[in-house]
Design a protein around this nucleic acid. Structure first.
Lengths: 154, 154
DNA sequence: CGCGTTCCCATTGACGCCCATGTGGTCCCA
DNA sequence: TGGGACCACATGGGCGTCAATGGGAACGCG
């Protein structure tokens, strides 16, 4: 694991780590994240293009269920419902890991995130995200300064 | 322990001390701090990049819970909630000490603090911080003179 | 029949656990 | 009050384990 800051014993996805994509287009999911997946008994991953950041968000199938439940509460003919389905279904994909805990970095992922050679995995409590490393650095720095501005307004 | 002014018997993290990083990138957490950790029954540390100083703040997992409680009060879909999660989940780290009470000084810590060969541990009551020794000296001196200016306005 | 995908095994390097050492500080006793 | 023994703690390094990575081989689909 290169550039990793992950640690054991966590019931949720936390921290971040960057792994390299190999010649076959595969990348290892950090062991700590795999441990959470196993703990939650997740074998099939649901991923979708994040609504806020240029990243792929990934979690168990219940992540999709959660959004579908929200969809059900909307008027099925409303623009909002159509938009949400477009994102959740049209922007979603099911994936699974190989025996070593690696996943294929497909064009679906590369196109939306700008990922080329390395992937930064970012914990988000109930799910985790796939980022282009530089994009994550920038977004985190932006979030930090935004928070500073809110806390101590000029 | 070099340059230490630590005191025993304390229920809080107090004072400061500077220890050296060894060839493997490890550094001993001052015994007095470890005693507080044990007293509070903390075996796993949660750390994050401080919002105010160029230092890593560390404490028990309840430090994370505190921030998550703030997160829960926000609209889960708001940009602010996503930004905050990016910091406390994606930017936080869980660490634990080795049997001798040392911790790994990862790039995550070095990059943000500028730490290279030595670490200054600084007590902050409920948690403690990791500083680059010179940075701590400067910040403390600055704080001291700022206080002087307030007390005796020119 | 060829290419891409999946499985399996080898390698390497990082990290955790263990034990050793030295040094500074403290306590005790003369 | 000074000296010496003891002890706690910081520090250093050996070694085993495991995760990340790389590449060969079999398999399946077009």
């Amino acid at each position: 694991m290169s550039g990793s800051f992950l640690f054991r014993v966590m019931t949720r996805f936390l921290s971040h780590a960057t792994n390299r994509i190999d010649a076959k287009g595969r990348v290892s999911v950090p062991a700590a994240f795999r441990a959470v997946l196993q703990e939650r008994n997740i074998q099939e991953l649901y991923g979708f293009q994040d609504f806020v950041f240029p990243a792929i968000s990934m979690g168990g199938p219940e992540l999709l269920s959660r959004y579908e439940k929200q969809l059900d509460m909307l008027d099925g003919f409303s623009a909002e419902a159509h938009e949400m389905s477009l994102l959740v279904h049209g922007g979603g994909i099911f994936m699974k890991l190989d025996p070593e805990g690696r996943l294929m970095v497909t064009d679906f992922i590369r196109a939306f995130t700008g990922i080329t050679t390395d992937v930064t995995f970012v914990g988000r409590a109930d799910y985790f995200q796939l980022w282009r490393p530089e994009a994550f650095q920038d977004a985190q720095a932006a979030a930090r300064s935004a928070r500073l501005r809110r806390d101590r307004p000029v």
